[in-house]
């Protein structure tokens, strides 16, 4: 295996792995932004966020929260950052989706920020329109796909409940639908 995260799973080094179950692993890597950074990733080799199934993603973020709590207490940090670098453009180095939890203290010289620039109203509207159009196109593709095959989905019951809630809401007329209708 050439993937560094799969390597971690495979070599089972006791000083690297904090936790593992059948789906998720929590590890301390030796390449980090700051000492104390903890990495959470699914055991299965998913390259990017978009490929991770919902139930595994839910488990990863739930464990990420527990890591946050644990390092608050054990490393005495005053804050944590949650970071996913998704895709080459984002600087993702290992081709295996992961969540980084980064401990923060005052004056730690970690520059996890960005410069902001107010966006003019018209440009904001252009972006909203572009995204809505894309969503529509995606739905079209989905409809075509669905006609070809009825894909079975195995999702967690919890998610289904949320979906059901969301579906109820949708009946009331979803915001997206409304806004899409008003787009010329």
């Amino acid at each position: 295996m050439k993937c560094e995260h799969c390597d971690i799973i495979e070599r089972k080094n006791a000083s690297e792995i904090i936790y593992e179950d059948n789906e998720v692993i929590v590890a301390i890597k030796d390449l980090v932004l700051t000492p104390g950074q903890i990495t959470i990733f699914p055991k299965e080799h998913f390259t990017i966020l978009e490929l991770v199934p919902d139930h595994i993603l839910e488990k990863c973020v739930s464990i990420a929260n527990k890591v946050s709590i644990a390092i608050f207490d054990s490393l005495g940090c005053q804050g944590t950052n949650f970071l996913v670098q998704n895709g080459l453009g984002a600087g993702q180095i290992v081709p295996h989706f992961s969540i980084e939890i980064i401990p923060r203290i005052e004056n730690d010289n970690l520059d996890l920020r960005w410069d902001t620039k107010p966006l003019p109203e018209d440009e904001m509207e252009t972006i909203v329109m572009t995204l809505e159009k894309t969503l529509l196109e995606m739905d079209q593709e989905k409809l075509t796909e669905k006609a070809v095959q009825d894909k079975p989905t195995s999702e967690k019951p919890g998610i289904n409940k949320l979906d059901a809630d969301a579906a109820k809401e949708k009946n009331k007329d979803n915001y997206l639908l409304k806004s899409i209708r008003k787009t010329p």
Partner: peptide, 8 residues
């Protein structure tokens, strides 16, 4: 690419 970022 995209980055997901949160500060606690």
């Amino acid at each position: 690419g995209t980055s997901l970022f949160a500060a606690n």
